[in-house]
Design a protein around this nucleic acid. Structure first.
Lengths: 227, 227
DNA sequence: ATTTTTTATACTGTATACAAAATGCTTGCA
DNA sequence: TGCAAGCATTTTGTATACAGTATAAAAAAT
């Protein structure tokens, strides 16, 4: 399970063994470029140009674009190709509502399905996150924060849930990435996380769900202001 | 809003105006073929063969397959092409859990967001469904049933929610389609629907969520036995 | 000066062609 | 008869070429 958490967190596939298809690689490359802002919302993706940049021909690139279109990261305009999808503030807020609901569901499921070892591994991540918080290392904190949330979802042992959660997460990730760590309530967030992990260890589903609810509600207040 | 409900229900795009791209058409064709069982789970999709059947070349077909792969309806095995994805009983149960959770969320949102006219339109669908029930017309009943559930989600006015709900719905649709209307509690289901509509009309979010919860819980018992 | 029409350019959509990989079959041998 | 190795066939993966369409710019007319 541990490896699964990690794999879920760092999206891009490790090229070590991966005999992955070319379009698969391109999908990962483009997704990262979009999330990290190399390709900005509303920007048109010229197949020749981008293909040349990546050193691939148009065919696999187009296949990758179809894949990303289904993921909702790019939009396909007939006869005008692909543009990076732009999300309205309402879109983002709607996504966050759904994400929150899904994490709450995952939390409830995790309370009955997760093994003690699984929970212990999450505790390790949490403690590590707290260390980075105290050291003031924002990027590391941010990454572990993400991993913990994704980890809770993974503990629910529900593949479709993890999938759609990851889908929406990748969309808002771009937003969070841009405005990541604004005028924050950092200490509060850490305290909330502590209560979340505690509730999970106690396998107290209702408390856990409630804590996650308020945590996520609080958490995105600053994000909304950025969008 | 009414047209949106309808559009959501009948998935395939109307070809009347649609200047849709070819791969878009193919996506819809293939999706229908998979849902309706023309292409069976585990079946391999030979690009030449299927392309010839549909009268298109491999390029747009391949693009369509990438799209469907992202939707989770087909699986892409490197160097061995596409196969129709097979779902385990656990997969299906997991999906149903998520669908249930999302419909409950949608119901709560709908109570505050839906206009009286929206709800009235749903009531019309419901009454129509009851008529078909009394007439013993199963297929019509089944379709309206689907439309009502999708309609509730549409009332939540949350595009990402509707999207992921539709995504999972299309996956289990195939299962429901195969075993559609088994050893049923048909009368019970209709009664539950009546209470659901009533709660929505009263804008009683908690009652509505609870009714949906039990309705969906009951509803899939027979489905599980088929899988 | 403004608007309209024409024309050129660039990009997308689709088909075809070629290369690499995998599968299946035949043939040879024990 | 059973098994293995090599060859043929099929199928996928990628690139390129061609056709259609939209956009932009330039020229002509009002």
């Amino acid at each position: 399970m541990a490896s699964e958490v990690i794999e879920q967190a760092g999206r891009r596939t490790v090229t070590a063994i991966s005999r992955q298809s070319l379009h698969g690689e391109i999908v990962n490359r483009l997704r990262d470029m979009i999330i990290e802002g190399d390709l900005q919302p509303g920007q048109r993706i010229y197949e020749n140009q981008v293909g040349e940049e990546l050193g691939v021909s148009r065919t696999p690139l187009r296949e990758a674009l179809k894949f990303l279109a289904s993921e909702g990261l790019v939009e396909l305009v007939p006869s005008r190709g692909a543009v990076v999808k732009r999300f309205s503030p309402k879109d983002v807020e709607d996504m966050l509502i759904v994400i929150r609901s899904m994490e709450m569901l995952a939390a409830r499921l995790a309370c009955t399905k997760a093994s003690d070892e699984d929970i212990a591994r999450l505790r390790v991540l949490h403690d590590s996150m707290v260390r980075h918080y105290k050291a003031g290392e924002r990027l590391e904190y941010y990454k572990l924060n993400q991993q913990i949330h994704t980890g809770i979802v993974a503990l629910a042992d529900n593949a479709p849930l993890a999938e759609v959660h990851g889908l929406l997460q990748s969309r808002v990730k771009r937003i969070r990435f841009i405005g990541h760590e604004g005028p924050e309530r950092w200490a509060d967030a850490v305290a909330e996380h502590e209560r979340i992990i505690a509730a999970l260890e106690a396998r107290d589903a209702e408390t856990l769900a409630r804590e996650l609810d308020t945590h996520l509600e609080n958490g995105w207040e600053r994000v909304k202001s950025v969008v």
